[in-house]
Structures are given as structure tokens and as C-alpha cells.
Design a protein around this nucleic acid. Sequence first.
DNA 1: GCGGTCGCTGCAACTCAGTTGCTTCGAAGA
DNA 2: TCTTCGAAGCAACTGAGTTGCAGCGACCGC
Lengths: 150, 150
Amino acid sequence: MRVPRKTAEDLIRSTGERITAARVEILSLLLAAPRALAHREIEDGLDASLAIDRVTVYRVLEWLTDQNLAHKISADDRVWRFNAVPAAHERQHAHFHCTACGEVICLEDLAPDIRPRLPAGYAPQSLEVTIKGLCSVCGGARRRERKRVP
Amino acid sequence: MRVPRKTAEDLIRSTGERITAARVEILSLLLAAPRALAHREIEDGLDASLAIDRVTVYRVLEWLTDQNLAHKISADDRVWRFNAVPAAHERQHAHFHCTACGEVICLEDLAPDIRPRLPAGYAPQSLEVTIKGLCSVCGGARRRERKRVP
DNA sequence: GCGGTCGCTGCAACTCAGTTGCTTCGAAGA
DNA sequence: TCTTCGAAGCAACTGAGTTGCAGCGACCGC
């Protein structure tokens, strides 16, 4: 269920920057993903015939983030994950991070209104809310396990 | 203004586990710190005469976290930071992360009450709130800079 | 369609946080 | 004081991400 490469190409064209195979391929992969992808997953998910270098993947991801076509999520496992940015989702939102498999998803409908009271001189720029827990797959696996060994 | 090593030793004794120089030294360093410390800062901050191996520092930090004497904070720079856990602060709280210098502090008085609506099958375990921005030092530096070059 | 230019890509080598395996040391109980 | 078993030290490794540089190719003007 890969998103038409056309959409990715259009998005890249709209930035006014160069349209390259690597950018189109990586962005369409992100657009099609139901969750945030780690660099490794992107590398593995890419068409093998293209053989895009890992450094290029890093650079394209950074570029997409700069262009606001993707956003970068940091999780506990010290791995960056990337999400394509649908227009509606540029606003603040929370993330869910599965502590078992590392899956990260965006939670669109959770935009907490927190007004931090910071020490004098501290200037807030952005707020990040992460919910850690088990995703449906890992949680399900654990429940089944518990049932088997009571 | 190092916290008396006695306190650190008592805390370790209360776990019933072994009291070792490395544990005492590292915990008292954490207790005295006004902010969360990265592994590197801990290594540098340790008494040079002790010469504690970096692997030992990692293992002690992990042990302190297991024993609930410290807590582990992940930030965008892919570095773990550690905080001693004052009794009052075991409850949920938020973190501030300076995007310029990497400083991380705990915000005791910010315990947001968020009830996430997750997709079916997803089980939340913990919530993490991070405010990113500039600390008083970096924010001040930037303000002074702007004044100099208008 | 045809160069020329400059940004992008690929390659190799590097950095740096954190981990692992194994041997030696030392805290604590007998 | 002796013994034991967990902790510390050392070396070597892993894996994400970065850097420098040479060569390629997207896009612009013609």
C-alpha cells in the first residue's frame, strides 16, 4: 500500500528544491507508513534496486525535516524516528512509544494544554509529550504469555 | 557543595545491597547536582584519585536506577542523563531540556493530568513531558548577542 | 536537445555513547 | 581471619550518526 510516488514528488516540488530519486523514494515510504520509521527501517524498506547509501538516507531525512515534510522523534532507544507530516498534523501532538518493540506512533487527538512554570530566565520553545507503554502487538503477546504460564 | 557522603552511603545501605566506593561516590555526586548529569559529566566530576572505570560508571548508574535511587532521562542528544531521586519526587514530573547546551532539569511542580486516548489494544505505562527551550544561561547569551548585533 | 553549474550522492573513515565477556578484586557474612 | 559471590577493571565490540571529499546528475539558460 505504497502511497503514489506522485504525491511525494509534488510535495518535494513545492519546496522549490531539487527533486531526486532518493528524496522521492524516502518521502513516499514515510507517507505510506502507519507509524514513525527508524533510519534502519527506512533503509530496509527502500527498493533494493535503487541501493541508496545510508549516508544519503541520513541526509535526506535531515533535509525533509528542515523542509517541514517530515518530523523527527527521539525515543528512549537513542534512535531517531521519522514521520511524514500531513498538513493537519503540524500542530502539537503527543507520541506513543512501545517499550517492548520500539514502535512509535503519533497521537493526533492529544494536544495537551500545558503552561509550564519555569525557573526565571528559562524560555520554553516547544513541548513534547510521550506516552510509554505496550502497543497492541506486544501487549497482546504479553497477555497470551501470562495466560499460558499462570 | 558536595552533599555529605554519609547520606549517599545511608541510601545505599537501605537497599540491603553492597556498599562500594563507586556507588557512594556516584550517588553523592548526583545528590549534589542541581540538574540531571550525563555519563560524561559524572565521569569528569568524579574524584580523579578514585579513577573509576567508565564501564563501572555505566553499571552503577544502571544499578541506582534499578534501586530507585536515581532516574534516567533521555533527551534529544541521544545521551542518558541521571538524577538522584529525592523521596518527594518519585511521582510524575516534567523535564526541561535546553536545546543549546543540553542541560536537563526536573520540574517538580508540573505534573500534568493527561488521560490519553490510545488506539485499541495499546496499554499506557508512563507519561513523559519534556519542555524544550533555552536555559537561563543560553537564553541570556542569545539576548546579549542580539543586542550587540541589531 | 546541449552544455555548465552547483547541489546531491556514494564511499570510506571516523566519533561517541553504550554494551559484553572475562578476569581479578574486595565487601560482608561465617 | 577465611570464603564466597557480586562488583570493578580492562579490552574489544556494536550501532547510530557524522564528516570530508571526489564524482554524478538535476535543472537552468541557451
